[in-house]
């Protein structure tokens, strides 16, 4: 029973993390048809912004040493600005190209960002102790302890999800974004400013990445220049499983992948456990054979012009 509760919490927190990542990718895909493979590296850069830029072996806290509220605000703002810069300096020049072109550009951007990190901070992993109070355990009942951070991840995700739902349902910009995601040209013909809307999508996606930087670094306790790559792969798989272009799908896909990973590590025999990710991918293939369009059907699939 205790084990079950711990597994459920762990699965939900993993799923929440993947859902946030998949949402960050889905937001850009929905209005721009861009699969941003640099998203994981945005998260990496947000993490590195916490420490003093130097190649010293021991990391010294920079922003990471500020008051927690400041840490959150500055890191999120930093990643938002980074995301916006990539739009205005790079993506806006390829936004009318094919999705494949944009995707390759995002790959190139991702590698560039990783190498910039190596140039400034060196290639070695750096230990970072962010929000240490969150890595402790909380006792739910006798003997059932879960990590506080896992509960924080779940809570933060749900707050963000509710905020996003309200944004998309209640605000003018949100409704415009849904319209543009379905039919970008028609939205523009009704006066929706295309560039501004895409910039807003980069802001939202960047804000999610910034928050994820903090969660991810707190959990890992270490920074590496490649740390965004494997998680990006899972985010991407989550968006595909959920159904490209559907934000609900991104969330569903994120939870599906996260929960599958955790449940597999709990139930797989000891010998197979190291190959957990392979098993997850196997399930992904089966799901896609069964539903090539993803778990959540989206109503609109027109090409944008």
């Amino acid at each position: 029973m205790d084990f079950a509760i711990q597994t459920i919490i762990s699965a939900l927190s993993f799923g929440s993390f993947y859902a946030l990542g998949a949402l960050g990718i889905g937001l850009l895909f929905s209005v721009l048809r861009l699969i941003n493979f640099a998203h994981g590296d945005f998260i990496t850069l947000g993490g590195y912004a916490l420490i003093v830029p130097s190649s010293a072996v021991v990391a010294a806290a920079l922003i990471g040493g500020f008051h927690p509220v400041l840490v959150i605000v500055i890191i999120v703002a930093f990643v938002v600005i980074l995301a916006l810069l990539t739009y205005f300096l790079i993506f806006q020049y390829v936004q009318n190209s094919s999705p494949a072109t944009m995707m390759i550009v995002s790959f190139a951007l991702g590698y560039t960002l990783q190498n910039i990190v190596v140039m400034i901070y060196g290639g070695r992993p750096k230990a970072v102790n962010l929000f240490p109070e969150l890595t402790g355990q909380v006792q739910l009942s006798d003997g059932v302890g879960v990590q506080i951070l896992q509960l924080v991840i779940i809570a933060v995700t749900w707050i963000l999800l509710i905020a996003l739902v309200l944004f998309f349902r209640r605000t003018r910009a949100g409704v415009q974004m849904r319209a543009a995601a379905e039919d970008f040209r028609m939205a523009r013909m009704l006066g929706v400013r295309g560039k501004r809307l895409i910039a807003l999508a980069f802001i939202l996606s960047g804000a999610l990445a910034g928050i994820m930087s903090l969660l991810f670094v707190t959990q890992k306790g270490v920074l590496t220049f490649e740390m965004g790559v494997p998680i990006m792969l899972f985010f991407f798989i989550a968006t595909v499983i959920g159904g490209m272009g559907s934000l609900v799908g991104a969330v569903v896909g994120g939870y599906a992948v996260g929960i599958a990973s955790v449940v597999l590590s709990a139930v797989l025999p000891e010998d197979i456990r190291p190959f957990r990710d392979a098993c997850v991918f196997l399930i992904v293939i089966i799901v896609l054979l069964w539903r090539p369009q993803g778990l959540v059907l989206k109503k609109a699939s027109q090409e944008r012009v």
């Binding site: 409704v175 849904r178 379905e182 039919d183 009704l190 929706v192 989206k298």
Partner: peptide
């Protein structure tokens, strides 16, 4: 916009 309701379409 099929993913929007009638009123949202008009509001756009």
């Amino acid at each position: 916009f099929t993913t929007l309701n009638v009123e949202e379409n008009l509001r756009i």
